[in-house]
Design a protein around this nucleic acid. Structure first.
Lengths: 135, 135, 135, 135
DNA sequence: GTGGTCTAGACCACG
DNA sequence: GTGGTCTAGACCACC
């Protein structure tokens, strides 16, 4: 599982981690029973403090997404894929709604929004492709 | 000028106020030389603390958007419309990009995004119309 | 009496006015029994609010520098020249000390200070001469 | 870093703090990457409210003098020494000019100013030495 | 522990 | 009435 952290986007870091775990489960990149990266491993990979990763995992456990197995670490629970699949679009929808709301309130037109979305989506897709090729 | 505050969207209140002032200037709802609402007035209207509004205004001043006349109030600077017009779409674009980035990274398809945007935009537009008619 | 106001130098406007009245008395530009400019007159000349000038005059009266004569206005008291002469250098000295204190605390050398004083004094003198010739 | 607050000198406390941080960087008492005292620490040391210190630090950040690392503290930015070195004399010069301007306008002679400067500088130096020896 | 944000309430200078 | 500053105390996210 690869985890990207974006500072200063208004979402707490521990929540960003939790969201990406859920997305990975919904995508099938993490399957039932599979171990998630250890706290330390993920902390190093994301350059985030260990406590912050630990907090993310703790909340995922409380939500029933991860199971703790002594001596083995944390694994994806049996119920997780179903619940994460349901959340997949909702997580994006909520953030999107907040942005659209601001746009609508401030006289941004539907056309302007659609143009923005298409332009940005294309830019990001190209960037992602480029970095795929590089790696 | 009407100012909407949305709690828990990850944007600090003082910044939400700042953004809306800039949008209003870009839209022409606030024109050069016009006074913005007094800190106390806006604090009451938005149910926010006076100091928070004052901080928003102070930063707008530092950015050259507002001019302060002691004992008289704050007015829109001559340079503000131009700078705010440039910022108008950028402010939305930045937030949008962050959401799209998360979507793209997590295997949301272009179609799914477009559907989300269209659905949410329509819902919000209808809600806005409804509340217009009600009032 | 000519009165200069410098905004944002940390001295309240009403006090700047008071100081300049005292300097003028110390210099002999205002003599015992002479009328000072009316509140309105000075307010216009300095582009300051009438209340602010009124406050300056009120404090000068309380300090015994000005006398109020019904129907005539405010005049320089008999005691004023003596007290103002004593204050003349002290008023400058106090401000100067504060600046020098900051300089000394922050490792500015005596030479640097002397150079600054000489340079600035010369610049200001030249500017004053220039504007004298122009007028 | 030692920080002195002088009440009633017309400079806002948060700005006095900001100036002294810049002086310390210019002097080399604070070096690139070094942490400045925490807001709470400096608040106690200067007997000033935490928010006031926080405001000083926030403005230094906006000016690019300090970098913020969440949960870790504030550090001197790489660009700071150069900019602060340039500001060093200017900060004093601006205050000095204001005093000299008042002096010149009110017929204080060049000799009187020089005497004042020398006398006050000497007094302050002696006082500083005395308190050095005492401590 | 760190900084960042927000609230509540006060005083000041100015109009 | 206006904005500007300061205090006191709280909660949050992060290390």
């Amino acid at each position: 599982m690869i985890c990207h952290i974006e500072a200063g986007n208004g979402i707490a870091i521990y929540e960003q981690i939790g969201r990406q775990v859920k997305f990975s489960i919904a995508n099938g990149s993490l399957v039932v029973g599979e171990r998630v990266p250890s706290v330390r491993e993920l902390a190093i990979q994301t350059a985030v403090n260990v406590n912050t990763v630990a907090r993310a995992y703790r909340e995922l456990q409380q939500q029933g997404v991860l199971n703790s197995i002594r001596g083995t670490g944390l694994t994806v629970s049996a119920a997780a894929p179903a619940t994460c699949a349901l959340m997949r679009l909702d997580m994006i929808r909520d953030r999107l709604r907040s942005v659209l709301q601001e746009a609508l309130r401030n006289q941004i037109s539907a056309d302007e929004i659609r143009t923005l979305v298409n332009d940005e989506w294309e830019k990001l897709s190209n960037k992602a492709d480029a970095s795929d090729n590089t790696s």
